[in-house]
Design a protein around this nucleic acid. Structure first.
Lengths: 384, 384
DNA sequence: AATGATTAGCTAGACCCTCAAACTAATTTG
DNA sequence: CAAATTAGTTTGAGGGTCTAGCTAATCATT
């Protein structure tokens, strides 16, 4: 119990956020058009837009509508002066920071070398952010979202980040001490899924499964239009679903996890066992495009493993979309057909019929843009 | 888009519903106690309770608090006169109807023979309900919830009910024409899960997985305190998760589904293959209690299969509880230890740590009580 | 040009809501 | 019997959405 306090201020916040997103996705909309999209009353829209305009988050553009009797519609948009958002991706191999405007348009970026030393990583992050902030003066900095490859609890506590070798770190507290703007911390894949929803292929999709493979396999669920975090915030660990009884050893200690078959590391290792040495998936994709039968066969097989995991999720969650991201997107063209084929075989027809597999368009920036998305959501949820 | 209209009337409805449930679970609470539980302001509680009292849904009881300075607390409760709810379970083997008061207490029941003939089934249902309603005069009849073993879409359309052999039936429309009180239709397992949440072991649990085995295996997910229906309302089909590659043939046409191992039918069939003929799980449970090694070994194995499916769900959904219901509950004592053991092995430690497996206390009435729960939810959501 | 028709956006007022603060009520304690 | 204490009610402020009417800005027609 003890749920969120429901009062008119909260309603206003929800409606303002809904209007903001609608406008973000449809720049130059008029109030009338926003009404059609959001279902809100025009009086409500009028007052909310007036408030957002006072806050500098919305401005009028030229008139828009075609030749037609009646008062012309006024276009609205979210100006660059509305503010900037920062997104951070923390990895052992590098610290990426991107800056975007309030619509999610990438403005600038900066990178620092990665490290497994926590204090050093925070120091470097601080420096890089300062550098970026210095270049983007004169506009309010609305927030920063930090993405970490590990288990981040609801509370903001980092349970474990295998690659970084961080364990039990009160990471949010540490980061909040570093910056004077709102900080949000989340698991990298979950953040990327939010980016997919705000900026990617799932803009109007309420129920989807996001799956990203890098060194490991991460997943995230969007259910009823919201990221699903689960009881303690750890939901989405699709990578460690068991798909092969007594199968390949996984980094988590168990056998037969999805991750042991479809992560970048696993694909490269499995190719290695067939005496094919590749450094990364880009080269693998090139070989597949070149028609290498061993490679395409292995990727096809990989698609089958993926389908084993996904079919169960399709049956249980009844999503409309499945999105593949991370490095997996690089070879997705050679994986998806098999996944599709096996999904048709394994999932129940009425559920499988509704689901569409797509490849993330966000590319290498998906996680950093996830940070931006996090910052945006936090900003819109904060009391104005 | 085009989400639910958010206004003050909606807030009131949500708060009234929250208070109603709080009072239902804690009869004789005072307004102060309800405030502690729901987090609502005492002024809000005062006005809402006054409204509910006017509507006849709440009444005062004797004073309650012990000897203490200050004005004594007044107990509140939901009286029998608040109304009755009807729950229906439609099966080919029988039509069960139960009547309960607004707190979910069973008052009366009636049963008619089942049939696969749709018109005949509706006729019989109508008769049985009339009979029950005749016995429960003088109190408003607030609604009826009908549970069907099949895929029921959000719209109320029945896609397919394998056992009843019904396909593509606008079941909700048909049923609404039959009764003059609000009718809600849902898949039987989903309804049972709601019952579990309102009347069973998950009263204060927001995220749980419900799994019931009868002739098939059905599942339902409670996420963020609400039943999760998925994009088209078909979520929860855990029974057809693939758990064994090229495994046993399942009724759905595929191989290796969970249902092919842990449904009542499957368990009996697998015992049959070991030359043990049983008619139902009650006898199997008796044999297991009697120490029959073959039976206990098979049930133990079954628990392992269950763990295969559940571990993936635990990793993806991060629930706090897993509830086993339906006929599976009868033999659950011999299954759960193995499930628990394998879950510890297969699911990620930080997620597995939070999850508790329990057995539904609702017994054979779980589905019919699910109908009652459906009716109650519909009533509380309807505009008063 | 002037006028009317048409449509977008604004605004006043009704009617909800929650919530803080003051008030009333009902008890125990001294 | 007064003081202290605590539960519940009432009042009023301040917020929300929404209906209905109003104003503004255009096109079409005379």
């Amino acid at each position: 119990m003890m749920a969120r306090r429901l009062n008119s201020a909260w309603i206003r916040k929800v409606n303002a956020s809904r209007l903001f997103h609608a406008l973000r996705e449809r720049p130059n909309s008029s109030q009338r058009q926003l009404g059609l999209v959001t279902g809100l009353d025009k009086a409500t829209i009028s007052t909310v837009i007036a408030q957002l305009t006072r806050d500098g988050l919305v401005e009028r553009t030229e008139r828009t509508s075609g030749r037609r009797a009646g008062r012309p519609e006024m276009g609205l948009r979210i100006p660059e002066s509305a503010g900037i958002l920062l997104g951070v991706r923390l990895e052992p191999t590098g610290i990426d920071v991107v800056a975007a405007d309030m619509t999610g348009r990438l403005l600038d970026r900066e990178r620092a070398p990665g490290t497994r030393d926590l204090d050093q990583a925070l120091d470097r992050l601080h420096d890089v952010v300062l550098k970026l902030e210095g270049r983007l003066k004169g506009v309010p900095h609305r927030g920063i979202g930090v993405c970490i490859p590990g288990l981040v609890e609801r509370s903001g506590h980092l349970v474990f980040a295998p690659n970084l070798q961080w364990r039990d770190v009160p990471i949010t507290t540490r980061l909040r001490a570093l910056f004077d703007i709102p900080v949000t911390v989340e698991n990298d894949t979950k953040a990327a899924a939010i980016a997919e929803r705000l900026f990617g292929t799932c803009r109007n999709v309420d129920d989807f499964i996001y799956l990203a493979a890098q060194s490991g396999v991460g997943g995230a669920l969007f259910l009823r239009g919201q990221l699903y975090r689960g009881a303690s915030g750890l939901a989405g660990e699709i990578g460690h679903m068991n798909i092969v009884a007594d199968g390949r050893q996984c980094g988590c200690g168990a056998h037969g996890c999805l991750e042991a078959y479809v992560s970048e590391t696993a694909i490269l290792a499995r190719l290695g066992e067939r005496d094919l040495k590749y450094d990364d998936l880009t080269h693998v994709a090139a070989a597949a495009r070149g028609g290498d039968r061993v490679v395409t066969a292995l990727l096809d097989e990989t698609g089958g493993y993926l389908a084993l995991a996904l079919s169960g999720l399709v049956n249980t969650l009844n999503p409309t979309h499945i999105v593949l991201g991370g490095n997996l997107a690089i070879v997705a063209d050679f994986i998806v057909p098999a996944t599709q084929r096996d999904l048709e075989r394994l999932a129940l027809k009425p559920l499988q019929r509704d689901v569409e597999i797509s490849i993330s368009p966000l590319g290498a920036d998906s996680v950093a843009m996830g940070g931006v998305a996090l910052a945006l959501e936090t900003f819109l949820e904060s009391t104005p």
